[in-house]
Design a protein around this nucleic acid. Sequence first.
DNA 1: TCCACGTTTAGACTTATTCTAAATACAGAC
DNA 2: GTCTGTATTTAGAATAAGTCTAAACGTGGA
Lengths: 141, 141
Amino acid sequence: MKHNVEELLSTHGVKPTPQRMVIAEYLLGTHSHPTADEVFQAVKTKLPVSLSRATVYNTLNALVAAGVVQEVTTEAGRVRYDANMSDHHHFVDIETGDVIDIPAETLNQIKLELGDKYKVRSFHVTIFGEVVGGKAGNTSE
Amino acid sequence: MKHNVEELLSTHGVKPTPQRMVIAEYLLGTHSHPTADEVFQAVKTKLPVSLSRATVYNTLNALVAAGVVQEVTTEAGRVRYDANMSDHHHFVDIETGDVIDIPAETLNQIKLELGDKYKVRSFHVTIFGEVVGGKAGNTSE
DNA sequence: TCCACGTTTAGACTTATTCTAAATACAGAC
DNA sequence: GTCTGTATTTAGAATAAGTCTAAACGTGGA
């Protein structure tokens, strides 16, 4: 089914301009976890006017801030975008670099043993939160 | 105890030059998960000669390749370095940005419920491996 | 229609990192 | 001890990703 991108943007408080629509539409229609530049390359021909990289970055940041898409980092220093906002994790194919979504319940069920389909070489958990009762950890010096 | 940095580098196949020694020494002596620039700022005065940023980057890349330290990414686009090579995960304090090491067994014991000390806002698991039986996933288009 | 304001654009700028070419250091051969 | 080849380091140029800026544009409401 075709996503109603216009409504999606509106309900998240992002005014649906043509530029924002084609960018959001592209992200919603792919599972490839593209970088900002890949988004730019993919959508620049889909508008009657020329598209500025600044608009792509502005839009991606706006979509992240609005909770329409999220940033994903799988290689040090590269930012990717993912319109799948369901509770999920990521599997990185170490041969191809492909990033595959893993639903949270899959991971819960099998307790980080991904079973037949994926051969887990390593995994890493990043947790975001607050330290209760202030600095008791081993952070900086 | 003072780390024997020279031996550590040698046994990992990295020739222990003065520049590499002070960089490795700094990383081994901190829990602050510094960026490349923070490493540069911290060690540049500790040598009788001037230190080039290129040397810092070369050394960090060499140390990562040799398995002496690892790269950590907690904010999109920022690369940090961690000389703790034991099996561990990371906790990011969302107020301060501090990155705190969490031993793997801690995480296993409490099954991602970090209990009293850390209030978990969100966490994310990134898994690296191979897809068994080739491309059956939902990666690109 | 006109205005105000938000958006987009091109390009300059910044920051992080890599590349390059020359200078340096050092281990081994003599 | 000197020579020589190779690896390392250096400063600065080059590149890449992302942000900023100022001007132009578009659109909804008076």
